[in-house]
């Protein structure tokens, strides 16, 4: 081997070995392998050699280049490893420090409960129909079989806007408006959620503005058995499988036969407490077969179709679901109340 080659080799390998950082290593690389580095310079001296020595000199320089490149690569990997190790050992955060601040928002508990309810009914083929809040006396009462002078008007303290217009006292006018909007198409199957108004003084269980969800199904073959099926499935899914449910005969002017839907008290599990008036049962909904007059008022022929309807108080359901004991909290817009309903 040419002495010059050997000298370059020893020097280069030694300097590579001595390099302390990737920067130094790069300087070594440039010194030996750069365009004007020692190894290219060696190769340039090849012309000064006798022709017969040239091939072997060239081969040796190339093998030197390979050797240096390998050493550089090995050293580079080693140094990089050292750098990473150094970073990993040196860089450190106090993980107990608070992270960046995010304050999530929340849906109102009434909206949450309503979504659950609509989801359940959606699964049973009900769509959503939204009806107006200001109504005519005609729609709110007369079309629902509650003529002037009907005793049911006593039960519903009504806010009037004029002699003939009012704030709806229930979502039931949505039955008639919804049917009329379907223009005779079948099957009719929708729920009507919304605000309703009663002239009741405010207390822990009364608020002049509250919410109801009405439901209606009309078709050529809808019967009391379907009403039972739908209402029972709803109550089971909303209140839980372990809930006992009963349909108890009752009276509404716009349904016949009518029933109240009672569920076993969620607080005392049916044993009797102050919330359920010691009966063990809670009234959660009213329901019934749509009265033929109402079917007629919706533009359908009661001799051809039958229907059932149900309605419940959203506020009451949400109070039971979340264990809220004062309806006024729903309308307080108090952050300390609302922010409790964050999350899934």
């Amino acid at each position: 081997m040419d002495d010059r080659i050997r000298a370059v080799k020893e020097k280069a390998l030694e300097q590579i070995e001595r390099a302390q950082s990737l920067g130094e290593l790069e300087a070594v690389r440039v010194r030996y392998l750069g365009r004007k580095g020692e190894i290219p310079l060696l190769l340039k001296t090849i012309g000064t050699l006798p022709p017969e020595e040239r091939p072997s000199f060239g081969a040796e320089v190339n093998s030197l280049r390979e050797r240096v490149e390998q050493a550089l690569e090995r050293k580079r990997q080693e140094l990089e490893r050292q750098v990473i190790e150094a970073r990993v050992t040196e860089e450190k955060v106090d993980t107990s420090l608070p992270g960046q601040y995010f304050e999530p928002g929340a849906l109102h508990p009434l909206t949450r409960a309503l979504r659950d309810i609509i989801g359940i009914f959606y699964g049973m083929g009900f769509t959503v129909y939204e009806s107006r809040e200001t109504e005519t006396d005609e729609m709110n009462f007369v079309k629902l079989n509650i003529a002037p002078g009907h005793p049911a008007r006593d039960m519903q303290e009504t806010f009037y806007l004029t002699e003939s217009t009012l704030l709806r006292t229930h979502t039931s006018p949505g039955q008639v408006r919804g049917m009329l909007s379907m223009a005779g198409e079948l099957p009719v199957r929708f729920v009507v959620p919304g605000r309703v108004y009663r002239r009741d003084p405010t207390d822990a269980s009364h608020h002049p503005v509250f919410h109801q969800v009405e439901g209606l199904a009309v078709d050529t073959d809808v019967s009391f058995c379907d009403l039972r099926g739908v209402v029972m499935s709803f109550a089971k899914r909303f209140f839980g499988e372990e809930t006992r449910i009963r349909l108890r005969p009752s009276y509404f002017p716009f349904t016949e036969p009518s029933c109240e839907v009672d569920v076993s008290c969620v607080l005392c599990k049916g044993k009797g407490c102050s919330v359920c008036g010691n009966s063990g049962w809670l009234e959660v909904a009213g329901a019934g077969m749509v009265h033929p007059n109402v079917i007629r008022n919706g533009g359908y022929d009661p001799e051809r179709v039958t229907g059932f309807a149900f309605g419940f108080g959203l506020d009451r359901l949400a109070m039971l679901k979340y264990g809220i004991d004062d309806i006024r909290l729903f309308y307080s817009n108090d952050k300390r109340f609302l922010s409790q309903f964050r999350g899934f």
């Binding site: 049973m124 083929g125 769509t127 198409e185 079948l186 099957p187 009719v188 199957r189 929708f190 199904a217 078709d219 809808v222 019967s223 009391f224 058995c225 379907d226 039972r228 099926g229 739908v230 029972m232 499935s233």
Partner: peptide, 12 residues
């Protein structure tokens, strides 16, 4: 009364 479930296609 037995419980029955509405069977027809979902309207609308």
């Amino acid at each position: 009364f037995p419980e029955r479930h509405l069977s027809k296609a979902i309207p609308g």
